[in-house]
Design a protein around this nucleic acid. Structure first.
Lengths: 232, 232
DNA sequence: GACTTAAACAAACATTTGTTTTAAAATAGA
DNA sequence: TCTATTTTAAAACAAATGTTTGTTTAAGTC
């Protein structure tokens, strides 16, 4: 099929896309060095040479994969935030948005708009100081932190910048941990997969910790009997 | 020199140990697949064949490295806990031990009894579901969680098992995040290395969040004007 | 000193790696 | 149809990989 002007890198429908998806999954699971182009080609149902034909090199394919994932995540975050956060943000709205944000993030570990390996790939990249760290900083880490800090500031105007940043890291750290340490946690819980019940208790806990620490709860430290907050 | 009975694996003083240390550092930094035995040998100042001579294979060297690191970490944790936690634990002692624990863990990111790459290597292993996950579970993840949960239970007898576990993950998550996401955090902070000042504020924050959430602080939620909390 | 053995080393090994080449197949436009 | 271009496929490539070999060095034993 010789007609696509190759202007839009995403206009490819077939092999190229399959390669990106296969490579992404393998990179996320085993890392760059432990994944061979032959594995990628096999999983994508393509020829070995296809990698170099479409991406010129394995390393370039890696960059393309990260680019692709970042694009997807950015798009989803945009719509999600637009979905959660009203245009003009009142303080109670910010509090509610914060609650929904925590809930959504944790719940994405069992079901999400995006494939599970997206986040794992980014986690991998973040830990290794690879050249892809820059785009990840600009398109994922920084905007995520920024969005969270904005919500926190709107919910708690009395917070200083430093306190806000520390809170953002505390919330993110608690949440990410369940993704990062998924295997050990599941092993100790003797589960094969995160259960809805388990994640619900995690959400309730992190929410309680956060809101209590921020002074946003009505009943200071007392823990709710049933967790009756639903929303969405 | 043919005289060492090879009974004690740690009795080796020279090449074998250097190989383990070099390999560990490289594995921790770049991962298994991105590290070649030649790199390892070069860094250890040894011959390429030394790896196979002493460890029979690269993969076996990897196992040996993890074993070694786990041993070191276990030993340090034992003495550290014995140092912190009194034999018979009163509630106020548990609270204080908890405080010291958080402080020590965070501060280990800038200076520690153990080389920095130990924890990074374990973090790497935890994220990839490698065969070394089992020993890591038994010698690191589970005992660490257990120790933390014991302290929490002693400090807050009213906590249920599930609440205790959730708190352990919350504390661990917050702490580990600063190791896991070290690069991005430092980039956004425009620092080359964690500063004492920065880590002090992190310790203060995590401690405040934890103690406030657990109801262990004297002044419930009120935040200090200047962050005058000192301790230690 | 003869003998043994652990260790180190350089060289070569076989395999796997990413990549290139070459040609055939597929597709679109004339 | 013919032609041009893109895509696929098999094979081969050079480089790098993990590993093995044969030899040498040094230390301990008789």
């Amino acid at each position: 099929m010789g007609r696509r002007p190759k202007l839009l890198p995403d206009s490819n429908d077939d092999t190229r896309q399959r390669l990106i998806l296969a490579a992404g999954e393998l990179f996320a699971e085993k890392g760059f060095g432990d994944t061979s182009v032959r594995d990628i080609a096999r999983m994508a149902g393509a020829n070995v040479a296809a990698v170099n034909y479409h991406f010129t090199s394995k390393e370039n394919l890696y960059l393309e994969v990260v680019r692709f994932v970042l694009g997807q995540m950015t798009a989803v975050r945009r719509t999600a935030m637009a979905d959660i956060v009203p245009a003009a943000l009142t303080q109670p709205q910010a509090v509610e948005a914060l609650r929904v944000l925590i809930d959504r993030e944790i719940r994405s570990y069992v079901s999400s708009d995006l494939p599970r390996w997206y986040a794992r790939l980014i986690l991998r990249c973040i830990m290794s100081k690879s050249p892809v760290l820059d785009p990840i900083m600009e398109q994922a880490f920084r905007p995520n932190r920024q969005a969270l800090m904005s919500l926190l500031k709107a919910a708690c105007p009395h917070l200083s910048d430093e306190e806000t940043r520390l809170w953002a890291y505390s919330i993110t750290g608690q949440i990410v941990f369940y993704n990062f340490a998924r295997e050990p946690i599941l092993l100790l819980a003797r589960e094969k997969e995160y259960t809805e019940k388990f994640l619900r208790s995690v959400v309730a806990h992190i929410t309680r910790v956060t809101f209590s620490g921020l002074g946003l709860d009505k009943h200071p430290v007392r823990r709710p009997k049933k967790q009756a907050g639903k929303k969405s």
